[in-house]
Design a protein around this nucleic acid. Structure first.
Lengths: 253, 253
DNA sequence: TCATTGTGACTGACTGGTCAGTCATAACAG
DNA sequence: CTGTTATGACTGACCAGTCAGTCACAATGA
């Protein structure tokens, strides 16, 4: 309770960029009947407090999630500070808690939100794709490379790798929404190609992971080694498509 | 809302397992008062300090590093507590600081230490390997799978993925000591196979990453999805070897 | 039109708790 | 007794999460 006031000699004050706004700049109090202690503390600092513009909840949520992605991507879960998320979103820390239960919920929201749309379109495209499996695979790789390497969502992958083990429920969610669907898509591609006689081996049907493994490398390489040893992701994926198709027994249909 | 659960793992770490041979012989708290016989100062109000057995500095370092691997693997860098590392190593927290400058130095020491021996033997074996490239690749995969999935060092990989971006110097070290050497080894394999006419494509020479990508998947899968959707790593790697060799234009020599 | 009251998004100082790193002290080896 | 090694209580900082309060705007009514 803020009423319980503090001996004036104590000066906590976190000397930090946030700066706990001016000490008390006078101005006793207006109408408040204040029994007990005259109390000098608090009272509106009045300074240049900027209040964030009022926003539609959905918009505010978006802003927060964008900020959170940036901050979590930069620091990982444990080291990310809610204060920083708030600052980046242009709001006060307390406001975060109007939109998300706690830090974990924010992280979750982040992953859930980012995960959404990617695969749906590919699934639909596959059903209707007229060309050869080779062409579709190339298209798929190009799409996914975009996601895994160039989209801001690429950080989600890294976050999942790094923190996922400590969020089993989140890992499950990610598995259901991304991994399982992705693998199903790949199995469908393989099954169709086999059926059409475009390939001979069922290795890709049994281990669709083999088809996307290089994408994981690409996503990780970016963050860790790009600086030291740049990797041409597109070229690598082209090479991969070539190798894997031949490896599965490709022959022109 | 299936996701609500456990944020950072706050389990107190069971301090056995590493066990620096005896030392802090149990007892600790757990209510057992044991006012029995002898050992008068066992009641231990404040003073009774239990000392860890004296160890050679090198051995103590080993014990600490083992403990640190366990704790960091479980929690990641930021969430790992020095207190827990100490407890697991059977020593007091202060003692850690006799061996490592600070938490970051401990993490670094951990990675440096774990990284050491793995590749050397493979490099030497390649030089002397009499069999076909196919056999050598199979051998290599088996070795690396051991490292990436079953060895306690597998956690190092995950730690690098999660934290590496925040330790650029460590990422560089890891690149030099593991990644670069591994890729060189793979390039050597490819070059030799090409020269011998065992394969036709130079894709593996240009992107040796393609050969190990599935290992990364395996290492990650273990931690995140094994529970949900078990993956038979050996079978996957066999399939990978088969696909990739055919993909590179393998023909029996 | 202007005052009053209601609403809820937004704020940030504060609390309670955690933890890295320190250091006076204790135990041991020789 | 003396130097070396180990200890763990302590400090200082840091941060997630709370909550009493603020403010802009909308609705109401005079």
């Amino acid at each position: 309770m803020p009423i319980r006031d503090i001996p004036p000699n104590r000066s906590p004050v976190s000397p930090r960029e946030v700066d706990s706004g001016e000490a008390n700049s006078g101005e006793a109090n207006s109408g408040k009947v204040d029994f007990g202690k005259a109390d000098a503390r608090d009272v509106a600092p009045v300074g240049a407090r900027r209040r964030a513009e009022r926003l539609e909840p959905a918009q505010r949520r978006r802003v927060i999630l964008d900020a959170a992605l940036a901050v979590f991507a930069e620091s990982g879960f444990a080291a990310a500070r809610m204060q920083d998320v708030a600052a980046r979103a242009g709001i006060a820390k307390g406001t975060l808690y109007l939109y998300f239960e706690d830090k974990a919920a924010l992280f979750e929201g982040l992953v859930r939100d980012a995960v959404d749309p990617v695969l749906g379109t590919m699934e639909r495209e596959l059903a209707a794709y007229p060309g050869s499996t080779r062409d579709f695979l190339t298209l798929l790789f190009r799409h996914l490379a975009q996601e895994a390497v160039h989209s801001p969502r690429r950080h989600i992958i890294r976050l999942m790798l790094g923190e996922g083990e400590r969020f089993p429920a989140l890992a499950d969610f990610y598995y259901r929404e991304v991994v399982a669907r992705g693998l199903d898509l790949l199995r469908a591609i393989n099954a169709r190609a086999l059926q059409r006689g475009e390939i001979m081996s069922d290795a890709g049907l049994r281990f669709p992971q083999l088809l996307v493994a290089p994408l994981l490398v690409a996503a990780v390489w970016e963050g860790l080694f790009q600086r030291t040893d740049p990797l041409d992701v597109s070229a690598m994926l082209d090479a991969h498509a070539e190798v894997v198709l031949r490896g599965l027994g490709w022959r022109e249909p």
